[in-house]
Simulated assay, not measured.
Amino acid sequence: MILAVNKMDLVDFDEATYHRIVAEATAHAGALPAPVVLNPLPISALLGDNVVDASTNMPWFKGLPLLDLLETIEVPGDHNVGARLAVQWVIRPYSTEHHDYRGFAGRLTGGSLAIGDLIRVLPGGQQSTVIGIDRGGVPQDTAQPGEAISIQLADDIDIGRGDVLVAAVASEAPIVTDRIIADISWMVDKPLETGSRWIIKHQTRTAKAFVSAIELRHDVATATHSPAESLGLNDLGRVHLNVSVPLVIDNYDRHRPGGAAVLIDEATGMTCAALMIRDSE
């Protein structure tokens, strides 16, 4: 995350003031439920200092101006945990030409995949070998993270939407569980309470979720947390959920697609919360 300390012209481009603000922001960011690494720089948007070109008013700052920083900053990607493909659609053409075609379509994350790779089907646990990869209807030998693909397997396995195909040999295996612990951002007026029921949408799986516990509420202003019985609009907290079916999860910090989810109101269909999954119970 970039921290642009603006209006430096109002403090005569004072270096000490800049470092004091950066220290306060860094301490606050480090106390968040998911600590954030800051990339700070001083700017004056009014005068253009350190926006496009390096500032002559702040020679003590040796970093890049904002535009250069935006163009060159390295955004951390998902750790190479091993290939994961959450099945979005099972492709069965039912035509004479492709009478035996059965492809499992989705977006590849976590690592690359190649013909001949051994995969596991979760949550079931069956294993098979990749014998075909299609991207945009064109056969491929390999696929890279971020690509939308369809893969074919050597074995006839009952696989449907919501299942996850993962590399059998992976640096980090996902967790299959129906009990999760997650940091939550609550986004509606209706409070979240212990014992309430919701729909959870995780990757391509949709299931029912029961709030078994609210562990804490995080106070953004003071960067502290306290016990809570409920969460209100814009509250941040940590919750424990029981899910009606097993989910294939990852820690959000290690693999975001496998660690992100939302809660939906059963009655209205409104998205009520964003979840960052931390662990299983």
Rank of each mutant, 00 (worst) to 15 (best):
R197T: 11
V36Q: 08
S244W: 00
P76H: 00
L47F: 11
I264F: 07
P35V: 04
T109H: 13
P191Q: 06
P123L: 04
E172N: 12
W198E: 05
D117N: 15
T109G: 06
L113E: 03
H19G: 08
A143G: 07
R205K: 14
P246V: 05
I214N: 02
E71Y: 09
V239P: 00
A221L: 12
I157V: 09
R135Q: 15
A273S: 05
Q88I: 03
D235W: 07
N234M: 15
D253V: 11
D68P: 08
V164Y: 00
P40D: 06
Q140K: 14
G137E: 08
G124W: 05
N251F: 07
I151G: 07
D141I: 13
Q88G: 13
S150H: 06
T26L: 04
A27T: 15
A54I: 11
L122N: 03
G162Y: 03
D53M: 12
R102F: 06
A182C: 05
V164C: 05
E15C: 08
D141T: 15
T204P: 10
I249P: 04
V176N: 01
P145Q: 06
A154L: 15
I184Y: 05
M1Q: 14
M276Q: 10
L192E: 03
G160I: 07
N50M: 04
L38F: 00
K62A: 15
W186V: 01
A267V: 15
A29P: 07
E266F: 02
T129W: 10
S230N: 11
R179V: 10
G259Q: 03
W198L: 05
D178W: 04
L46N: 10
L113K: 00
N6Y: 04
I119P: 06
S185N: 13
T142H: 13
R92M: 08
E15G: 06
V87P: 03
R254M: 11
P35L: 06
Q88M: 09
P35E: 08
I264E: 08
S230Q: 15
P257S: 06
H19I: 09
V245K: 12
G259N: 02
I119W: 07
S280G: 13
P65K: 03
V138A: 13
H79W: 12
H202K: 04
I277C: 04
E229A: 15
G160Q: 14
V138M: 13
V188M: 10
E147W: 02
M58W: 08
Y101E: 12
M58T: 02
Y18P: 01
T206N: 11
I181H: 05
P76T: 00
H240M: 13
F61T: 02
G269C: 07
